[in-house]
Design a protein around this nucleic acid. Structure first.
Lengths: 98, 98
DNA sequence: TAATCATTTAGACAACTATCTAATTAAAAA
DNA sequence: TTTTTAATTAGATAGTTGTCTAAATGATTA
């Protein structure tokens, strides 16, 4: 889970994930959309790959990047468990409807 | 959202959040549970506070820390939007039931 | 084969982070 | 009022991170 949080802790990497929702892209196409050098984007893609958030597949000269959201499941479960756990404070809030 | 990801990107801070699910604790009680100096924990609490994940209220000599999970809502929404967005790849997977 | 193109790897550097010890602040107790 | 207690702030330091340029790799095209 550490790699996952690390990967998400950067605006560029989160933008890349959002970008890939529109469909797969190769490294160059991703880099084009950022005001940053290709090696920097390559590094971000590497961290996303390490976290399992993207899958890289070589296609000839190009490297295709695809979103993999299954890794987010654990995080989602952890987050939702917080929603369930009602804080003692929430009991203080009176019903505002009458 | 940047502060939020930053705050979550540390195992100690995530443990503190998990700890506070059992109820409020003051800084000393939190520090006791970690193999780390009080100033270090104090720093972690500060980052959690900056992210809005905990609320600090002074009670005499002590400072009480309480979980605030409302900040996680945005993150939860962002995450769930990935679950909905079916990747083109998933269509490839044939029905395995027959 | 030589040149070009897509991408990564290597190496450097400034900025940021986690941790520590020492000093400070502020409240409570003696 | 002096001392103790709870917690933070300040300052130092080692390690990590994001970014760059230059070099390397590997595939395609001329």
């Amino acid at each position: 889970m550490n790699n996952l949080f690390k990967a998400l802790n950067d605006p560029t990497r989160r933008q890349i994930l959002d970008l890939l929702r529109g469909g797969d892209l190769n490294a160059g196409e991703i880099a084009e959309r950022f005001d940053m050098t290709k090696p920097s984007i390559s590094h971000h893609l590497d961290l996303l790959r390490q976290a399992g958030l993207v899958e890289a597949t070589k296609q000839g000269q190009f490297i295709n990047y695809a979103l993999n959201t299954t890794v987010l499941d654990d995080l989602l479960v952890w987050l939702m468990s917080f929603q369930k756990t009602d804080t003692p404070t929430s009991a203080k809030t009176p019903d505002q409807t009458h």
